[in-house]
């Protein structure tokens, strides 16, 4: 019953995300105006920043789920936390890849240590890759508990890493969002928002997919043991 419901939900989010992604790609490449300064390469911004924000949201969800796990000890929260970190890590990797492409196109080098955001994402990848090292080395309830504690500690590290890198280096990154609001024309902002929602949709779809898959695996395991027991108990065996 719940399985068919979460399956239906997955279909809905998946379809909506696919439609939004298609719309974002279309809008970004065919409708949004070309940047006067940077030309076509600026289009990477719509995806680079959108997945960067989506990955930080995934890490925030992982942190909150970690807190919830420690309070309630429900396995569900641990699953959401670990899957979110996996997706966030994947997105962070994509941020680095798109970031280096953008850096090569606009600054002429693949890697710029002076760009605090790019460097922060490198640190974030190291931080959250360690999560899986810790997770693979512990078992049972302790694995879930330690994962939750680490998800909280790592999320506290993210802003600290960003500020430490920023105060250590000169600031060369184009500042698109300032405190007075977004520093871009509305025709670009609209498509950025569409890309951002599509990135969140992608995160949600992947999260649901993984949750459904894990639950199905668990049910399959119980069914298997039940069948094995039945076979063992049957008089013919």
């Amino acid at each position: 019953m719940t399985d068919s419901r979460s399956g239906r939900l997955l279909v809905v989010t998946g379809t909506a995300t696919a439609a939004l992604t298609a719309l974002a790609v279309f809008g970004v490449f065919f409708v949004a105006p070309e940047d006067a300064d940077q030309g076509i390469i600026q289009k990477i911004f719509y995806f680079h920043v959108a997945i960067a924000i989506a990955s930080l949201v995934a890490f925030a969800v992982a942190c909150i789920s970690g807190v919830l796990y420690l309070r309630t000890r429900r396995e569900r929260h641990d699953e959401v936390s670990s899957i979110s970190i996996g997706i966030g890590l994947l997105f962070s990797g994509l941020v680095l890849v798109t970031g280096t492409i953008w850096a090569k196109a606009s600054w002429g080098t693949w890697w710029v240590w002076g760009d605090p955001r790019l460097v922060t994402f490198l640190i974030v990848i190291l931080l959250y890759a360690a999560y899986f090292v810790l997770r693979s080395r512990a078992e049972g309830e302790r694995q879930r508990r330690y994962s939750a504690i680490y998800a909280i500690a790592a999320f506290a590290s993210v802003p600290l890493s960003f500020y430490s890198v920023r105060i250590a280096q000169s600031f060369v990154h184009p500042v698109v969002f300032t405190q007075s609001g977004a520093n871009m024309p509305d025709s670009m902002l609209v498509w950025f928002v569409v890309s951002q929602i599509a990135a969140f949709g992608l995160y949600l779809t992947m999260l649901q997919l993984e949750l459904v898959q894990r639950r199905t695996e668990k049910r399959l395991r119980t069914l298997k043991t039940r069948v094995e027991r039945l076979v063992a108990e049957s008089p013919g065996a």
């Binding site: 360690a130 500690a153 890493s161 430490s164």
Partner: peptide, 13 residues
């Protein structure tokens, strides 16, 4: 592996 990434801000500052 756990300790050093979180320690980076301290080293930098």
């Amino acid at each position: 592996v756990l300790f050093l990434p979180s320690l980076l801000p301290v080293v930098i500052a």
